[in-house]
Computed example of a mutant assay.
Amino acid sequence: MSLFSDNIRALRTKDKISQERLAQSLQITRGRYVKYEDGTSEAPYDILKKIAHYFHISIDLLLSVDVRKIDIQDLLKLENNRLILPIQVDQAGENFIEVVTQKVKAGYLNGYADPEYIENLQQISLPFLGPGKHRGFPIEGDSMPPHEDGSIIIGRYVENLGEVQDGKTYILITKSEGMVYKRLNKNKKNALVLESDNSFYPNYEVKVSDILEIWEYECNIGRSDKKYETNDIESFKSMFLELKKDIHAIKSST
């Protein structure tokens, strides 16, 4: 028996659907379906996709999470049958915000679709936020001033790429880059251009197919009250370029 077998049996039983009826909806024979449910055969991708759509649940959950332990009704359903979960509220009815701390940041890429991972994240509530699903992410480095290393960016989940607005900042979860916070521009057909507010860092592109999640900036939680000087970055950049010139001149003269 596999987790997938247990899941489809549990979902079918919960909805009081016969094996025959489910098999007909999947356009396969009952005998073929039974093999998936008793674990003697693995469902190919096309059938797996049909089952996921039939029960309105993501393939990630079907394969990796025991759905008997979660309340399907409390999951946030998104386009393409994806889910961000769970949706929990405080006593005032405000959505809790899961916070991805530095300690668990490395595991987010593997756990973003795992309800048990999400449930174990620290939670906060910010009543001034508007509608939508929000989550907090730590940032590193100095590429996006005035936000400093260790700050938490609270983002609102973006359901589709059409919502992304040029020039606004977003947290991106990508297969290759992991978690990044940048200013986005959609001036490429199948890619986004990521820009740092610190001009010291060059722009770069991320393919749309590489993107797992996009979260639009809503607010920042930080501890520093340092006054940000706009000239600091340009001064540092100029000093660095002068240093490179000096090093090049020394090498040329030897």
Results as ranks from 00 to 15, higher is better:
Val158Asn: 11
Glu216His: 06
Gly93Ser: 07
Gly155Asp: 06
Leu161Thr: 15
Lys207Arg: 11
Ile171Asp: 08
Leu184His: 02
Tyr45Gly: 10
Leu48His: 07
Ile173Gly: 04
Ser238His: 10
Cys219Ala: 13
Ala191His: 11
Pro115Lys: 07
Pro202Ser: 07
Ile70Met: 06
Gln102Ile: 12
Leu22Tyr: 04
Lys237Arg: 11
Asp210Ser: 00
Leu61Val: 14
Gly107Phe: 10
Val67Arg: 12
Asp90Arg: 00
Arg12Gln: 03
Glu177Pro: 02
Glu205Lys: 03
Lys245Gln: 13
Glu94Cys: 08
Asp6Met: 10
Arg21Cys: 05
Ser151Gly: 12
Arg21Met: 08
Ile97Met: 03
Leu83Asp: 09
Pro202Glu: 10
Leu61Ala: 12
Ser64Glu: 09
Ser253Gln: 15
Glu159Leu: 00
Tyr108Lys: 00
His147Thr: 15
Ala249Leu: 13
Leu3Phe: 13
Glu216Val: 00
Asn187Lys: 04
Asp66Lys: 04
Asp46Leu: 11
Ser224Asp: 11
Leu75Tyr: 06
Glu116Ser: 04
His53Lys: 09
Ser64Tyr: 12
Asn120Met: 09
Gln73Cys: 09
Asp71Tyr: 12
Phe236Lys: 11
Glu242Asp: 09
Thr29Ile: 07
Lys50Ile: 00
Val193Met: 07
Ile233Trp: 09
Tyr36Arg: 12
Lys175Asn: 14
Gly162Ser: 12
Leu109Val: 02
His147Trp: 14
Phe240Thr: 14
Gly31His: 10
Val164Tyr: 04
Asn81Phe: 02
Ser238Gly: 03
Leu121Arg: 05
Ile57Phe: 05
Pro202Ile: 03
Ile139Val: 06
Gly132Leu: 07
Glu218Val: 04
Ile17Val: 14
Ser25Glu: 09
Leu194Trp: 04
Asp38Trp: 14
Glu119Lys: 07
Asn81His: 05
Glu42Ile: 14
Asp15Ala: 08
His53Asn: 04
Lys103Arg: 06
Val100Met: 03
Val180Gly: 03
Ile47Cys: 08
Gly132Thr: 01
Ile70Pro: 02
Glu20Gln: 07
Phe240Leu: 15
Asn160His: 14
Gln27Thr: 08
Val180Gln: 11
Ser196Thr: 01
Val164Cys: 09
Glu98Tyr: 15
Pro44Leu: 01
Ile118Pro: 01
Cys219Lys: 08
Gln73His: 10
Arg12Glu: 01
Leu109Pro: 01
Val164Glu: 08
Ser5Cys: 03
Leu243Asp: 11
Phe96Gly: 02
Asn95Ala: 02
Asn231Ile: 07
Asn110Lys: 09
Glu37Gly: 04
Asp60Lys: 01
Thr174Glu: 05
Phe240Lys: 15
